[in-house]
């Protein structure tokens, strides 16, 4: 598995170069042209990324999530839902790094092969940082009216989280 994921990129670049040679295009010049576009692209998305990282980190600093959790923890106890998994599920659409950090905490506390460790792994792997991706992709082309994109994205996340719970239970419960 590891070798496979390591060889994909070199092979992909090999394919691109080979095909370019075969079609007799001026590879080096075309590369530079594209690279320049990449630089401009980063320049355009810098404010978007800065804005999102700033807001998300500030939000995490405020410990607002912990406040809510303390408030609802009696209900979670009754439902037998492991407490640590909730902030991770809540953070997953907002910040990949933050949910990853919580997952790592869970690994350290309970071990990666515990039920909650497996659940956290599945949760981290099953969805992406919806709000970040949305802000980045739409921000890069200056689309501000995103219509129904966010609700659908979050709905997909929610279904992923529910699915992760059920599937981990079936496989490892």
């Amino acid at each position: 598995m590891n070798i496979l994921s390591k060889i994909v990129i070199p092979l992909f670049i090999l394919l691109i170069i080979f095909y370019g040679v075969k079609k007799k295009i001026n590879i080096y010049d075309v590369f530079l042209e594209g690279a320049k576009e990449g630089l401009i692209m980063v320049f355009h998305i810098t404010p978007t990324i800065l804005a999102m990282v700033f807001a998300v980190n500030l939000f995490l600093d405020s410990n607002f999530l912990e406040g809510i959790l303390n408030f609802i923890s009696p209900i979670l106890d009754i439902l037998n839902i492991p407490l640590n998994i909730i902030p991770m599920a809540l953070l997953r659409p907002i910040s990949g790094t933050a949910s990853m950090a919580i997952m790592n905490d869970i690994f350290i506390k309970f071990g990666p092969d515990s039920f909650i460790g497996r659940l956290a792994s599945t949760l981290q792997g099953c969805t992406d940082t919806t709000i970040y991706v949305l802000a980045l992709y739409f921000g890069s082309i200056k689309v501000t009216k995103t219509r129904y994109a966010l609700p659908v994205g979050l709905f997909a996340d929610l279904m992923g989280i529910i699915a992760a719970f059920i599937i981990t239970f079936i496989f490892f419960g």
Partner: peptide, 17 residues
């Protein structure tokens, strides 16, 4: 990586890959 991949993909685009 943004600069590198945009360069690579431009090759793929021009060559028809």
């Amino acid at each position: 990586l943004m600069i590198l991949w945009n360069g690579m993909m431009k090759i793929a685009e021009e060559s028809g890959l």
